[in-house]
């Protein structure tokens, strides 16, 4: 009798659990479906809005999407023998674009190292300023490069320097945040050891922290360098030197200089892919070792 009763309650209990589970699954599915519906609605209405507010419509545009690449290819095909010479002609601009990226990455990374150390709990020279430094990094990260570049072009005139400063400032913000996340994982034991022999803050950071985190720093900086090459090409297009500027000139000239457009496209594409591969190769090596 007793056993039977216990079996009954046990069965009821299982049924309750089952019902509750089914209820939860149903509710989860409902939420999922609702989220999906909202998302789809957002995408559809967003797309229609974008379509309305654009000069050309999507339906028209998609049918002539190959017109421009076709024109470029045709003209480049006719003058294919000139392409190597054009690539040589634009190589100095390409070098300038790469130099902008390299110099801004170096400058930005150096400033980011100092600021990230100042923004990390346990390492900061002035713990009270941690919040200030962090907000500063946030701000540097938030301002798009183009804003700084355009303002600086107005003051300094065209050329590579405005782009370099703009990208470097953004790099400080972006790398500073990543570096300080790396710093948080650094062991504090070498610091204690250094402090016990009377090392100054700079010496403690240089000898105690940097050797621990250098591979990670380098890996992030390589990734940033790759991003900055793209950024420096884009900034050239809005008026700062480098290959982007040549691209803008050739592009706005229109037909007749599409062979130049093709040559620049090729150079840019090759450069981006090359540095993309190089940086991912070395990043894998660095993180693999660490």
């Amino acid at each position: 009798m007793i056993d039977l009763a216990a079996g009954q309650t046990g069965k009821r209990h299982v049924e309750n659990v089952q019902a509750a589970y089914m209820e939860m699954t149903r509710r989860k599915r409902l939420y999922g479906a609702a989220m999906l519906a909202v998302f789809v609605a957002l995408m559809v209405s967003g797309f229609r809005l974008a379509d309305d507010r654009s000069a050309g419509s999507f339906a028209n545009g998609i049918s002539n999407i190959f017109d421009f690449p076709g024109e470029v290819l045709r003209e480049a095909g006719e003058k294919i023998t000139l392409l190597p010479a054009l690539m040589v002609k634009f190589f100095p601009s390409l070098l300038e674009t790469i130099n902008i990226a390299a110099a801004s990455t170096l400058l930005g990374a150096m400033a980011a190292i100092v600021l990230s150390l100042l923004a990390t709990r346990g390492l900061a020279r002035w713990p009270r300023l941690i919040a200030v430094v962090r907000r500063l990094l946030d701000l540097l990260r938030a301002i798009p490069e183009i804003v700084i570049a355009l303002v600086l072009i107005f003051i300094l005139g065209g050329g590579p320097v405005p782009a370099m400063i703009a990208i470097a400032l953004h790099t400080v913000g972006a790398l500073g945040k990543l570096f300080s996340e790396v710093n948080e994982n650094a062991s504090l034991k070498p610091l204690d050891g250094l402090q016990s022999v009377g090392a100054s803050w700079t010496q403690r950071m240089w000898l105690g922290v940097i050797p621990q985190v250098a591979p990670n720093y380098l890996s992030y900086a390589l990734l940033r360098f790759e991003i900055n090459i793209r950024a420096s090409a884009i900034l050239g297009f809005v008026g700062s030197g480098g290959i982007g500027y040549d691209l803008k000139n050739a592009f706005s000239w229109g037909q007749g200089r599409y062979d130049e457009v093709a040559a620049i496209f090729l150079l840019l594409f090759g450069t981006i892919v090359l540095f993309d591969q190089l940086s991912s190769h070395y990043r894998n090596k660095l993180t693999g070792k660490a």
Binding site: A50, S54, G61, D67, F68
Partner: peptide, 16 residues
């Protein structure tokens, strides 16, 4: 950058 230039010929200025 290159996508933007290529696409701007087909879709014109605007968010599209």
């Amino acid at each position: 950058l290159i996508w933007t230039i290529v696409l701007s010929r087909a879709f014109g200025p605007g968010p599209l």
